[in-house]
Design a protein around this nucleic acid. Structure first.
Length: 587
DNA sequence: GCCGTTTTCGGCCCGACTGTTTTCAGTCG
């Protein structure tokens, strides 16, 4: 885990502990804000500290910069140490229960003297919670359910897990005659690599039938809230979905609001407030002529400057439309103001796939089936990159089979004049950084992707050296799935990503954005870092089965979140130009 | 705790739903 991410987690913990101490809410927000900034901060925070430019980071002042320094120098934060000692751990556990925040957790702790979630569950069963003022029978039941939920679920979902359910719900609701407009919102629309829930926004003049259809849908396991404009459900698989229904005339404002991110919205509103403009889910309002009382009562008070579409809302703020993938408060508002928003890559820009497995190793498609699938999707080239000999578990090809493979791929290429079929391999990087095939074999291949599939436990220093060593090989065009992480299953192995990127630039080796929804590796932050440093980037699906080529859209989304355009991705090039790029290091 | 093309002090985004209350606090997104 990078220092930035470590610090972000610690700052979030400090914010929560301060909240449980009933500190000044704005002080709490200061810690939260910097935690969020650090999470997506591209540069290594240690470098900024060395440069002495910590104070230039938005939200970092005298105290927080001193805390960052302290952590970098000592590995600990005194304030956090003290907070942990003074806040009972059960309070932190309680705030993970849906519906329980700091205030209620504190009340339960103080009134009932609880020390664990088990004791809280017992207090609920015994009726002690319902007897407290501010709580009742319903709260008591909800807390019991919540404890069960906390113990069962991580609340982190990968895109591949949520999209099918989201599509089903979107289709069902979209088919209702009352629904005029509908869209996914929230982190799923921003295409974060993992999401906590599914947000849907509907434009309709008749909200009740839409709400009823939503809360009684066959996917629903439990209804969490059911209002006239807002409802929440949990599916049988424990995935939460929130639906918001607004009049079609304010759909754009609602979509913008519920797409977030929260930090992006806050930044926009802070900016708008200075100009006496109010932003909410009903529109962008000029409130300069209103009294304080008028502003308070009616969320739609004032002169509406925009609401129907997102474009109109951004225009009302003198901004161009900002793509959802950029709305993370990482400089997109500044760029929009300056007119320097990047042109982002689209799925249609991708010309070919260069990482795919056939049934010669562990893929499920024959060579011909794979070529057919490539043709169906309008791509113009494919590289056949089956596994190398050491990866016996995945049917890696030994030297003889590899030679057979090269011949049959060349034959296939000749058979299909409309699709360029490249020879290739996903060759294993061995423990010492050498490759699983000799150089004279690699030299025959059009495309060599080098990846790590073994010894994930090596130290960060060793692992970094191993990968950098592999990049020094002149035939290695691409490093596959750089960090090896599997979302929800396996953490990234220890690695100095900055060092690897530097070597990639120096050796002219491209880095892969692996588009499999469980991998998404490089992630958006690393991809942005790599591009800024000048590394070449390809987006690959690592196809093993029918349908996997469609993962490309996930990889494209990662690239978009990394601010990358078509010119920044190598497999937007035509076949020959791509090969030239990947072979430059062979010269 | 941070911050300033209205401020170095006084602000700091906005609204819906729930459950418990007789008008609202807490939680959530």
């Amino acid at each position: 885990m990078s220092v930035n991410v470590q610090l972000a987690a610690l700052f979030s913990e400090i914010a929560l502990l301060l909240e449980l101490q009933e500190s000044n809410p704005f002080r709490i927000r200061a810690w939260q804000r910097v935690a969020q900034v650090l999470e997506s901060f591209e540069e290594d925070i240690a470098h900024r500290a060395e440069e002495g430019t910590l104070l230039d980071i938005p939200g970092v002042g005298k105290d927080l910069s001193a805390t960052i320094q302290e952590f970098l120098e000592t590995g600990t934060i005194t304030e956090l140490f003290d907070l942990r000692a003074s806040v009972p751990p059960v309070l932190v556990q309680m705030t993970a229960i849906p519906g329980l925040g700091p205030k209620k957790a504190l009340k339960l702790y103080q009134e009932l003297g609880l020390e664990s979630l088990d004791e809280l569950a017992a207090a609920c069963t015994g009726g002690a919670v319902a007897a407290l003022t501010g709580f009742g029978e319903k709260s008591q039941q909800n807390i019991l359910k919540g404890i069960d939920f906390v113990r069962r679920i991580s609340g982190i979902w990968s895109l591949g897990q949520v999209l099918p359910a989201a599509d089903v719900m979107l289709k069902s609701l979209g088919g209702l005659k009352e629904v005029e407009k509908i869209s996914i919102a929230g982190s799923l629309r921003r295409m974060k690599e993992t999401v906590g829930d599914v947000d849907i926004v509907v434009g309709s003049r008749a909200p009740e039938p839409v709400m009823d259809a939503f809360t009684s849908h066959q996917l629903v396991g439990e209804v969490l809230a059911h209002g006239t404009t807002k409802s929440s459900i949990r599916t049988h698989d424990d995935l939460q979905m929130d639906l918001r229904v607004v009049p079609p005339g304010v759909f754009g404002a609602a979509l913008m609001h519920f797409t977030g991110s929260k930090e992006h919205n806050i930044r926009l509103r802070e900016m708008a407030t200075r100009k006496d403009i109010r932003i909410n889910e009903y529109g962008i309002f000029d409130v300069s002529d209103l009294t304080a009382g008028e502003k308070k009562g009616d969320p739609e008070a004032g002169r509406r400057l925009g609401a129907a579409t997102e474009e109109a809302c951004f225009k009302a703020l003198d901004l161009p439309w900002i793509p959802p993938e950029l709305r993370e408060d990482t400089g997109e508002i500044r760029a929009a103001l300056d007119g320097t928003l990047p042109e982002l890559i689209e799925l249609e820009d991708i010309r070919g796939e260069i990482h795919a497995h056939t049934d010669a190793s562990d893929g499920h498609l024959t060579l011909e089936e794979l070529i057919g699938a490539v043709r169906e999707r309008g791509l113009s080239y494919i590289a056949i990159t089956d596994h190398s000999r050491s990866l016996t578990i995945a049917g890696g090809l030994d030297l003889d089979r590899m030679k057979w493979q090269i011949d049959r791929v060349r034959e296939a290429d000749a058979r299909h004049p409309d699709i360029r079929v490249f020879t290739g391999s996903e060759v294993d990087i061995l423990k010492d950084g050498t490759l699983d095939y000799p150089d004279d074999l690699l030299a025959e291949l059009d495309i060599v992707i080098a990846s790590i599939h073994s010894r994930f436990g090596m130290s960060g220093e060793e692992q970094t050296k191993r990968i950098c060593e592999a990049m020094e090989n002149p035939y290695v065009g691409v490093i596959g799935h750089l960090t090896g992480r599997m979302l929800g299953e396996r953490d990234a192995y220890d690695l100095d990503v900055e060092q690897v990127i530097e070597t990639a630039v120096g050796t002219r080796t491209a880095l892969e954005i692996n588009a499999h929804p469980k991998r998404l590796d490089l992630n958006d932050r690393h991809a942005r870092m790599a591009h800024k440093a000048g590394a070449g980037i390809v987006i690959c699906t690592d196809t093993h089965r029918s349908g996997h080529l469609d993962f490309m859209r996930f990889g494209v989304k990662v690239a978009r979140r990394a601010w990358l355009g078509p010119a920044d991705i190598l497999n937007t090039l035509e076949a020959d130009a791509l090969l030239d790029e990947l072979h430059r290091k062979r010269e």
